[in-house]
Design a protein around this nucleic acid. Sequence first.
DNA 1: TAAAACTGTACCAAAAAGGTATAGATTTAA
DNA 2: TTAAATCTATACCTTTTTGGTACAGTTTTA
Lengths: 146, 146
Amino acid sequence: MRITQEADYALRIVSLLAQKGLLGAPEMSENVKVPQGFAMKILRKLTSEGIIRSKRGVNGGYALSRSSEELTVADIIEAVDGEIAISKCLLSTHDCLNNPDKSRCRYHNVFASVNEIIKERLSRLTIKTMVDANIPMEELIKIINN
Amino acid sequence: MRITQEADYALRIVSLLAQKGLLGAPEMSENVKVPQGFAMKILRKLTSEGIIRSKRGVNGGYALSRSSEELTVADIIEAVDGEIAISKCLLSTHDCLNNPDKSRCRYHNVFASVNEIIKERLSRLTIKTMVDANIPMEELIKIINN
DNA sequence: TAAAACTGTACCAAAAAGGTATAGATTTAA
DNA sequence: TTAAATCTATACCTTTTTGGTACAGTTTTA
């Protein structure tokens, strides 16, 4: 029930970009305190998933490819960790447990419903909201619940 | 963002107990299709966490220690996988990233809010609801959202 | 009193996560 | 025009977590 460390870093990196515009990997890796090699691996993933775009060469770096209002926490987690699925039986690559006939397992709908809600809530949280300083928890909860 | 296979099995095992009453490990392991040794490990965890109670000896087995209306999906996941925490920085054993002064990290509240909501929703889903056959997804979603 | 259950602990193998290394391709400023 | 600063791609490695097994008990009851 945990996002990976990689996704955690990615959220911090994207939030940093939302605040500072074009930034190089060395600067970000220092700010977010992630080893530079690993930061670059994450940055490449975010680039290939279309979350950020890169500019090579001297004075190059990375910048958001959409505005921070259009990017959600769900987008970043999915880009880095893949499909959000609380149980293996929800993965498109997996069959449900306990049934040879490839139909859905007994509890499939329960898992699917919970998953649906988690995805929905994570999509209501934009990077802009993440970055806006000092929003108290009660208000964040209202935002997430709409 | 995934519960472990162990927690998945645990949910199925508990649901089975909710339907059938006192049941032995061999029977459950067959029904849920989990290796018996592993099933017993899970059963011991559930027992020590007070979710189920055990009876030793011939004609022994396991049964729910509370009614299926009082047991929630959140209870089972927590019993098996431990504290529900979407980011390491929410774990009681961990400090937030990025701050030597042990205060909370910049995005702590965001993670905490999301986590709060996930826990809340998982607590609205009882084992009884899990077991009730054929509840359509829209209705499940209503139940989870209250 | 033996068989059918559960208990506890230690161990092990495979998979996933986190991270590093290395060789190369672009860009730009001097 | 070339060296430095960047990003790209791929392969590899180490550590942690997960999933599972083994084995030596203890209880209960028919």
